[in-house]
Write a protein that binds this DNA or RNA. Structure first.
Length: 118
DNA sequence: ATTCTGACGTGGG
DNA sequence: CCCCACGCCAGAA
């Protein structure tokens, strides 16, 4: 439909927007993983794209990117924050214990959008 | 166009 | 748990 289908050239803005929405829904003191968000969006194979989307989260102050970690619970993206340990401090400020860039009791703090948002 | 890297995930050993 | 390899998509050189 339409004179020109603008579906080529991926980078669907909707995908980024969705990532931000889900991230905003992450409760206080809880964390989730990129893959969980990606799967919830139907792009389980593009877990990396979720991280790339968070790259623009700097524009969205309502997006707690510090609550998003990899499946191991490691703060892989801490280097992208302003400070070196800003991400860790933000998490600790929420009552999350972080040791050596890794979240403790991850299974207890993990927040799965698939299960919580259903 | 090709190559490499990256805020990932899964599987095998 | 760790290490290694592959798949995945997007962007930079």
């Amino acid at each position: 439909m339409g004179v020109k289908d603008n579906n080529s050239s991926g980078s669907d803005p909707n995908f980024f927007d969705k990532v931000y929405e889900v991230a905003k829904l992450i409760p206080y003191g809880r964390v989730t993983s990129y893959g969980a968000i990606a799967k919830y969006l139907g792009a389980a194979r593009s877990a990396r794209m979720v991280g790339w989307a968070m790259n623009g989260s700097g524009k969205q102050e309502d997006v707690p990117a510090h609550r998003v970690v990899n499946r191991k619970g490691i703060l892989t993206g801490k280097h992208h924050f302003d400070g070196t340990n800003l991400m860790q401090q933000l998490l600790e400020n929420e009552g999350i214990e972080v040791i050596d860039n890794q979240i403790q009791d991850l299974e207890k703090l993990f927040w799965d959008p698939m299960k919580e948002l259903q």
